[in-house]
Write a protein that binds this DNA or RNA. Sequence first.
DNA 1: CATATTAATGCAACTATATTGCATTTGTAA
DNA 2: TTACAAATGCAATATAGTTGCATTAATATG
Lengths: 122, 122
Amino acid sequence: MRNTIARTQILDLITNSKTALSHAEIEQLLDGLCNRVTIYRVLDRLIDDKLVHKIINVDGSLKFAACRNCSDHHHDSHIHFSCLNCGSVTCLESVEPVFKIPRKYKVQEVNFTVSGLCPDCT
Amino acid sequence: MRNTIARTQILDLITNSKTALSHAEIEQLLDGLCNRVTIYRVLDRLIDDKLVHKIINVDGSLKFAACRNCSDHHHDSHIHFSCLNCGSVTCLESVEPVFKIPRKYKVQEVNFTVSGLCPDCT
DNA sequence: CATATTAATGCAACTATATTGCATTTGTAA
DNA sequence: TTACAAATGCAATATAGTTGCATTAATATG
């Protein structure tokens, strides 16, 4: 795994962003630094390296956010908040939902998104 | 809203299916009954009419399932189980997660998907 | 410091999925 | 039975992501 300019910049953007970023947003922020295909590939690598996690938004679009405490495996069992007005997606790291599902289902991952209005849009 | 053949068939398929169906699965099951564009439009109408709800799968793909108790507004606050092996998506209607998020967020909808292995695939 | 190795990139082409405009068909109310 | 508008089919277009391959560049080694 090499520390390229694209990788550094993309990781920086995601890490310093208050909200999760989409591929398109990253592309715009990078302003031609690299090809859009490279962004896809860098994102894949960052996810493999457990530095970033992928969030499926309520509208099906993808967002990327920095991982915290994901050294071993991804555990993004926290809630994601998706604002229906501004489109921002925020990790609510401290909130973990409680639920019980039938024992016959073997749970591996959890994807929990709540949508509505974020503090900035109320 | 007219009761066309396409509408009837598509609603039947979704209602009688144990698991949520994708557009592609519906298209295959209909076996040329109507154009794929029509399927998109019928699904949109069924969602508007609160007869079907749309589920965003963990891989970002869309699935459609029959609505229960959605006369006024969609309340699919139940859990969806997504099988990583066979790809099936099942509504676990009886399971509703408990969670608390900061008051400054205004919650409107909830989208909760758990992935792993379904009873058939364990 | 030079250089060899190979990961990473750029580009173009391609695939998959969804949407739109418009002419035609068809369900339904009068 | 007929008229009207909803629904459909088709072709074109849009959007998002992937792949193959030649080229570039990061890094380990001598």
